[in-house]
Design a protein around this nucleic acid. Sequence first.
DNA 1: GTAATCTCTCTAGTGACTAGAGGATCAAGA
DNA 2: TCTTGATCCTCTAGTCACTAGAGAGATTAC
Lengths: 143, 143
Amino acid sequence: MAFSIGELARRADVKIPTIRYYEQIGLMPETLRTEGQQRRYGQPAVARLAFIRHARELGFEVDAIRTLLSLQDKPDHSCAQADHIAKERLREVDQRIASLKALRKELKKMVEECAQGRIGDCRVIETLADRSHSHKDWKEAVG
Amino acid sequence: MAFSIGELARRADVKIPTIRYYEQIGLMPETLRTEGQQRRYGQPAVARLAFIRHARELGFEVDAIRTLLSLQDKPDHSCAQADHIAKERLREVDQRIASLKALRKELKKMVEECAQGRIGDCRVIETLADRSHSHKDWKEAVG
DNA sequence: GTAATCTCTCTAGTGACTAGAGGATCAAGA
DNA sequence: TCTTGATCCTCTAGTCACTAGAGAGATTAC
């Protein structure tokens, strides 16, 4: 019934150091150890890790995941907070998509206008050098 | 004609430590110093910094920018490499947009199905806990 | 001359991991 | 029981592109 960190890593498809890292930052609880200090896990660890991974796949930050995990343990609590966190994330994703689309437009223009000739006439370089230009909030688009 | 790092920061709309950082990693060249070791810049520094910032806005990595900057100084060179770098970036952006759209779809479903009731019935929490699920290449979508 | 502002270097922190060193432990076969 | 090879342990440092802060020195305006 008790398996090693390597086995947990396989079952949840998460790398071993990541599991230790999650324990360190408190996303995964400290677990049983053998006499030789090796970690041993049970089925609930797999479920919790899968929850965390899925949340990370959706881009939730560790702090948000911490909250979501704690909510999970209170079935009778209102789910308003969980809903709020998810809506926030949706808003972020929408914004990110919009920023990336703007980026894409400019990149596409650059690439399409490039005549594949000399650097001196290259629209890619020219566009980058063009100073009459300023984005706001670009940092959220590039990451 | 020679101005300080603070003035350069204002003109190019880049923070002072960022300028020093760019010098450190070789994106900006070492520049004149006063007797007291303070940096002094001229107009070309503003142009170069603007080039870098614009490239960062478009999400080019520092290594790519290094290449683009070196190309800029060879007007008679073919622009194939610049074109290649830009096309690569466009591909990345396209992929990222696609990943984010998939994410968005799942988030939207979660949020819409949430009945705003008890955690025990919350689709947000349920969806996250659902283990019958695996994305490939999600890491490029969440960043 | 003096005060206010600016700048210097250096170190460390961000987020969410990932990689490696150097050594201990475990499970399985002989 | 012993050995071998795989796995595991902790700890430190690295990733990317910055950003923040300490403590000291330089410059500029008056």
